[in-house]
Design a protein around this nucleic acid. Structure first.
Lengths: 151, 151
DNA sequence: AGTTGAAGTTCCTTAAGGGAACCCCAAGTG
DNA sequence: CACTTGGGGTTCCCTTAAGGAACTTCAACT
């Protein structure tokens, strides 16, 4: 298929972010690397993704500075580790997970739980305003044009 | 292309969520509907997406309960509005936006700003622990198997 | 009766994903 | 030293999804 490059659409941070991790499999690869499934063979095994596509995705994630390819042996063996940029992108996965847990997990309950280091509790993530600390969701805000707006 | 259905991979809320909004264009369509670009022609115009693909995506989002198709005229005219499920999915867009603003916006600054109703300030979203209220990011948690875990 | 406009549908072309087979290279083994 | 092993890809072919333009439908308006 001929896929559009989203970020050429407009000045839109969502479109730009999609050009980084919007391709099929990329969020799942990011998740794997995050939880320590970090070698080519391991990821391929875990996801069942085609080797060709996995190569393409990893190369793209390296180019975009999300993961770093580093040797772990004197033989030509490599593992992929999250950069700071990639680690912060995991925020998105955490929010996706929370939504999936709530709306799609069903009777069985969430497949994965998170223990928060700060309080030691099994807990969930919540969106709050950086300024006032109150909850901040879709209905709590108005979007306004910013300095980087196009046109 | 033959695309894998991600949620058949394993019990994974990320994979399940990707089956809902992971297809190309879907997050941008969700964004449009959220900000009030809610009719077929408007969305097609705004995104430059092919009409065929837009039809497919909207049908899928309706099936998944993310948007609702409702007539707005006695003529056969329809608009798409977010359901509660869809509105909560916008949380993911807000986090994507924040990441894109920080890592991809460059000199120009963010293209869109958010004013928070609660405090009236132009502000950003932050991830916090539902339990203790402290920041909760990738490095602040340990993932554990939950009740819905596979195998 | 003819036009308009929103909302799709059809059809063809092109490119991306799936999958299996193959390759390369350093280390270990006999 | 020849041979095997295993990680990490690369190649090739097939299928299917995205792009894009043209066409259709249907109610209201002129």
């Amino acid at each position: 298929m001929q896929r559009t490059n989203f970020s050429e659409l407009a000045a839109c941070s969502i479109a730009r972010t999609l050009d980084v991790i919007g391709e099929p499999w990329s969020p799942l690869i990011l998740r794997d690397v995050w939880v320590g499934i970090s070698r080519f063979e391991q990821i391929q095994d875990d996801l069942g993704i085609s080797r060709k596509v996995l190569t393409e995705r990893l190369n793209h994630l390296v180019e975009q500075g999300i993961v770093e390819r580093r040797p772990y042996d004197r033989r030509p063996r490599y593992e992929y580790v999250l950069t700071e940029k990639g680690t912060e992108l995991v925020d998105m996965l955490m929010v996706m997970t929370r939504w999936g847990d709530k709306w799609l997990a069903g009777e069985a309950g969430p497949p994965v739980l998170y223990r928060h280091h700060a309080c030691g509790e099994i807990t969930t993530v919540d969106l709050r305003c950086t300024h006032c600390g109150e909850p901040m969701h879709a209905r709590d805000i108005d979007p306004l044009p910013g300095p980087g707006a196009a046109n």
